[in-house]
Design a protein around this nucleic acid. Sequence first.
RNA 1: AGAGAGUUGGGUGAGUGGCUGAAACCAACAGUUUGCUAAACUGUCGUACGGGUUAAACUGUACCGGGGGUUCGAAUCCCCCACUCUCUGCCA
Length: 423
Amino acid sequence: MLLVNQIRENYDQVFAGLQKRNISDAALLLDRVIALDDLRKSTQSQRDQIQAEANTISKQIGQLMKEGKSAEAQLIRERTTEIKAQIKELDEQNAKAEEDLKALLYTIPNVPHSSVPQGRSAEDNEVVLTNGTIPTLHEGKLPHWELIKKYDIIDFDLGVKITGAGFPVYKGKGARLQRALINFFLDEAMAAGYMEVQPPILVNEDSGYGTGQLPDKEGQMYFAAADNLYLIPTAEVPITNLYRDIILNETDLPVKNVGYTPCFRREAGSWGAHVRGLNRLHQFDKVEIVQITHPDQSYAALESMSSYVQGLLQKLELPYRVLRLCGGDMGFTSALTYDMEVYSAAQERWLEVSSVSNFETYQTNRLKLRFKGEDKKTQLAHSLNGSALALPRIVASILENNQTPEGILMPKVLHSYLGFDKI
RNA sequence: AGAGAGUUGGGUGAGUGGCUGAAACCAACAGUUUGCUAAACUGUCGUACGGGUUAAACUGUACCGGGGGUUCGAAUCCCCCACUCUCUGCCA
């Protein structure tokens, strides 16, 4: 969430940022934050003063008791009754102000970076670059949901039997392709300086709040009610939360982690056209990269993450484009997001396979993720993450783009991982 | 899952109602000493929200797993919850 001081000190900038997100009552929201914070401060300060008085009296009573002057002690004690009532009342007011303030801050999204384009929807995203050649396919080309049946490598019907729609079963070369991609992505990330972590894929409530899935998006996560745990929608949640409530040394920055996990998304109500086959699933595999950086370094880190992801797509020989998301399409917690889309030649569509974002201090404020520098001062770090990469749509485009009448050719870079070069 | 024991500052660990934001030791940091290193010695050494200052200094309050209660006063007593450990059971 945003920092109140950030709102106070950069009011105009925050206001303009929220405008970019098409929030019409931004001024109202921000003024309300400041008013609530003022209220919080004043009740807090009154409470502290009275508490200080009470503490003094308590000490006096202790002293008098020790000296055996219990009559005098009794006299002072009577005054505390009144003070206690006041403290209780101020406590309640203060707690309410704090609660209201927090609830309000939860509803305010991150301030977009100055380079974020104005816009309302995906159509207003800015195409930063397009790379690679879109293949010309033979007569009788098939979309991937036909290809997987033809070659019997992914079975949706079996998944329905075992679990339900959106939980495919990968078989034979399909399963091998999954494993090859995961290993390829992990090896590449390690070579780029990311430390591999294998986190739990169920997380508690605190972690959900830490990265911003809660309180608003609980409907998107599967929930294990008996144990109060959520299945992760992305490895971002457990990996970033590794650093919750931590004060790092400045010399530890940047922290670079990579992790492979399955991801689970309920995607309630989002079924329709365009979601056939592998395009949208309830369970899918993803390798995620996360960085924790010094505030001065986070945008350089974002660019390096973007080029890193592009490098993967180039090695996989997939045509792709990079989008800078507009204010209306950007995630709630992000300050700047690049989406990478690959072209899927049979569907004749661009498919999002990665989303790389800088959250600045929006997540670290909730996470209490700070670092201590040379000057001994603690300040919030910046957090970033990106998919590198999400598997299903990569698989879809590899299958569609490389299909030939004789079979599907695998990208060269995967051959050693696969142990075969054609499906 | 059953029974028992625990949860204190970066770590170990004292502390059963006021003099405890918290002993002691270790680690860390700065300095003295030193040819260098080590040892020794001295000092610093938590976080949050306020006040204060150009910035400090200084200062108020809170925090001993989380929440609530008793009390003039709680790390200390009571209740609820979470987690950890040990034994028993189960299990990849």
